[in-house]
């Protein structure tokens, strides 16, 4: 009987095709990905049937943490309509920071303890920050800290310990206590730090941001679904007071039967 001769086969698999596929997938994910923006508080937005997307450019975001701390920020990409990408988020933020501090010093008559170089450094750090929320009088101290301490401060972690030994829970978030001042005509007026920030964002010199905020699509309020209404109401009430009564709230998509 003749033996059937088994031909030995190599177990090698040609991986070239596999590699092609993975590289394609990789390119797809690299091109489509927008990275999760780091935020001081984790917020799960409520779901809604609304299908309007958050605009990519010219949005000022107000984040309300479940504890009731308020943060503001300008996020988004450089506005393609403005020449040479001049108004990328970080250059807008530089203007906002200085604008807000000037307004605060104007209204309160206090001077922040920031000399030229410190102020420059603080501006640069602020320009890289996505969300910000610290009372004005703590700003010099905040920007003298290391970046991880700054993150902990905003997140309200490890307060009263180490580098944050004299940070109280009330120093997290933008306070909404009344600031009394006298306007040009000599009339007494009240404002607060949150309103100063919103006005500084509005007057940051970018016309597109300004008109988006007027139309309402440029202001996005982001709050957790289980946050109590009185916490969010404080923010909404302040927005109404400075006549930004049109705005959007961030929601997640909910599917509903038609």
């Amino acid at each position: 009987m003749g033996k059937v001769k088994m031909k030995r086969k190599s177990t090698r698999i040609d991986m070239t095709a596999m590699s092609d596929v993975t590289v394609l997938l990789l390119t797809f994910f690299m091109l489509t990905s927008t990275f999760l923006q780091k935020e001081p508080a984790t917020v799960i937005t409520p779901s809604s049937v609304s299908e309007i997307k958050v605009p990519m450019t010219n949005v000022s975001t107000i984040l309300v943490s479940p504890e009731g701390n308020v943060f503001v920020g300008v996020t988004g990409e450089a506005d393609p309509e403005v020449a040479e990408g001049k108004w990328a988020s970080d250059s807008i933020r530089r203007v906002i920071f200085n604008n807000a501090i000037e307004r605060y010093e104007d209204y309160t008559g206090k001077k922040l303890n920031l000399n030229g170089l410190q102020r420059q450094q603080a501006t640069e750090q602020f320009a890289k920050m996505n969300m910000f929320g610290v009372p004005f009088d703590r700003i010099p101290e905040f920007f003298s800290l290391k970046s991880e301490d700054q993150e902990n401060w905003l997140a309200g972690k490890g307060l009263g310990k180490g580098a944050l030994s004299n940070v109280r829970p009330s120093d997290v978030g933008i306070p909404m206590d009344d600031i009394k001042y006298v306007d040009q005509d000599g009339n007494p007026q009240t404002t607060n730090e949150f309103q100063i920030w919103m006005r500084a964002i509005y007057n940051s010199g970018n016309d597109n941001l300004q008109s988006a905020m007027r139309k309402g699509e440029g202001i996005a309020v982001k709050a957790d679904q289980s946050t109590r209404y009185d916490v969010v109401h404080k923010v909404l009430d302040n927005l109404q007071t400075i006549k930004y009564n049109r705005f959007t709230v961030m929601t997640a998509l909910k599917t509903s039967e038609d």
């Binding site: 990905s33 909404l236 927005l239 709230v249």
Partner: peptide, 19 residues
């Protein structure tokens, strides 16, 4: 894949009366 947020947030427009 883990770092991407595929779902963009939605928004809901609100108009409140003036204060």
């Amino acid at each position: 894949m883990l770092c991407t947020t595929m779902i963009k947030s939605q928004t809901l427009n609100i108009t409140l009366p003036s204060n």
